[in-house]
Simulated scan of single mutants.
Amino acid sequence: MRKILFLPSFFLILGYAEASAQPTDISSEPDQTWVHQHTGTGFPARLGGFDRSRIRDLTEDQLDIVVSYKDADQKDVLTLYLYRPAINDVPLWFETARQSLMVGGFAQFAPELVTETVFTPPGQLSTAGMVVSYSLTGSESKSTAIAMAPLNRWLLKVRYTSAKYDAQSLADEIPKIVSAVETGDIIEQAPEALAVKPCAKKLKLKSKVKRFRPSLVDALIGGAITSTAEEEKSDPDKPAETVTYCRDPGEYGRWTVFRANESKNSYILPLGDSGRALSVYRNTLSGAISGDNRRRYTPVHMKLGQQDIFTDINVLPVPETLVAVINQGAIISSSTTWPDEGSTITIDSGLATDE
């Protein structure tokens, strides 16, 4: 059930990443498994030869958890992340994490791809997990790896850098690490993980946009839409098709554009590899209701527990322009996506009286 609230008019300037509380340490008994409050996931005190050293909450409600492990000589680094992504898709976030690694600090050590493969996480019946491993040169570390596994509506990410294992051996260790994390008895089955491929053609994106004057209808429609995949459904009587993301082949600097089912009218722009993203999609419903047949696109800031809807624009923008639209724009409505039981839509009250 959706609950709709009208709150005082607001105008927010947002940065690239989701505004959140400062990371806070979570206390735990050093010799006992720490259990995540929302998922029941247990992180052992000792894992794969490592001792748990730190647990941090990057949000205010354990929606993004970082669990650090250290070995005796502190040359190997193991970090586990548990977060509730705005879009529940392993290949999308795995590819984002892989690309983030290549443009990050490890790029200076000339990482060489050794293996990229899939594995079957605990409780799953298919190869729903993904791992990539690189060998490193010019560093004390021999290898580094990233893995992603589904955990019901959440994602478990593993980052492992080793001075002991070569890249292939490190890749072989990853499924053991994931299996050692304790999960609940009920595991939702996830689809087989398939590598993200380039889209067949790149989108025609524009650098200059014009904003529409927002209305109450826009705010209500935007707040009610919880996924850009909705825009892709042409026949509501047909079952929802599986969403497969491709990587737009255009060159956008630091940004990578992903498209659901080769969409020509929408895209996803991840903000880092921890589940947050911007999106923009063709909004045909607002124009149909208002009688305005001009093309319009809705920008969305997709956070871990909420989606913020911004004023419609007239074209599908390049990533830099979409970021600017979000940074400089007004939120007209927001829709909570956490907790799972229902959602609350918050509307800018100024739209209710503005004619």
Rank of each mutant, 00 (worst) to 15 (best):
T144Y: 04
T120F: 00
A260T: 01
K303P: 00
L316N: 05
F258G: 05
T59N: 06
K204C: 07
T137V: 13
V323E: 06
R159M: 14
Y165G: 00
A97S: 15
T117M: 07
L304P: 01
S135E: 13
L92I: 08
S135M: 09
A72G: 05
K208W: 12
E112K: 08
V77W: 13
R294I: 03
S334L: 03
E95N: 14
A200D: 04
P8D: 03
L155G: 02
Y252G: 02
N327G: 15
L82S: 05
A17M: 13
I345Q: 02
S227W: 01
T127Q: 15
L82C: 05
V77E: 13
I187F: 01
L155V: 00
R56A: 13
G253D: 11
T244M: 03
D235M: 11
Y81T: 04
T24D: 11
T144D: 03
V325A: 11
W154S: 06
K197V: 15
P122S: 01
A145L: 08
L205N: 04
I309G: 02
S290M: 12
R2Y: 05
I331M: 08
S126W: 10
S286V: 11
G222H: 09
L316V: 04
Y16L: 13
K204P: 07
Q168E: 14
D57L: 05
L7R: 13
G49A: 11
V181Q: 04
S215P: 06
G222V: 11
T79K: 14
L220C: 06
V209M: 07
L5Y: 00
K201N: 10
V118E: 00
P150R: 05
K238P: 09
G129M: 08
L170P: 06
V280T: 12
I187P: 02
K208V: 14
P339R: 04
D185K: 11
I331F: 02
G222W: 06
G250E: 03
K303C: 03
R98T: 14
L63R: 08
L205E: 08
S53Y: 00
Y267A: 01
T242H: 07
E18Y: 06
F50M: 08
T41K: 01
F119W: 01
N88W: 02
L5H: 02
A19V: 14
A21Y: 09
S286P: 01
T284N: 14
